[in-house]
């Protein structure tokens, strides 16, 4: 990815990364590296640990996720995150608001002559 495209993507992600991280936990618990991998596989680009862990920390402080550290048989342990009820509600509400915003952008862009 060229640096300009990466900058653009990073700027777009700023408003929605918290929601995307929450969305990675809807099917059950997960940990940092796995969340980063899921986001990359979804086409959202590489999310570095320096960006991801402050987000997870903030979500935990806000009570939207809860975490538990589990030791592994081999290698370092992992901290598993899962959605709280408040996190699930936030994801539903803000997800709907984001979709509405996204639709407005799409409508405007198409009305402005940009090909879909």
């Amino acid at each position: 990815m060229c640096p300009m495209a990466a900058d653009r993507r990073s700027s777009w992600l700023k408003g929605v990364l918290d929601l995307l991280v929450l969305s990675c936990l809807t099917d059950g618990e997960s940990y940092g590296y796995e969340i980063a991998k899921a986001l990359a596989e979804a086409g959202l680009g590489e999310i570095k640990g320096g960006t991801l862990y402050p987000v997870l920390n903030r979500l935990e402080q806000a009570g939207l996720v809860e975490a538990e550290f589990r030791a592994a048989e081999r290698g370092p342990g992992r901290r598993y995150y899962r959605l709280t009820d408040a996190g699930r509600t936030r994801l539903t509400d803000e997800g709907a608001a984001w979709t509405e915003f996204h639709r407005a952008v799409e409508t405007r862009l198409h009305a402005g002559g940009t090909a879909p």
Binding site: G49, Y53, N57, F69, G75, G77, R79
Partner: peptide, 11 residues
Amino acid sequence: RTTDELRGHLA
């Protein structure tokens, strides 16, 4: 907790 988690990520 945080440093353990980050070390795990690097691994």
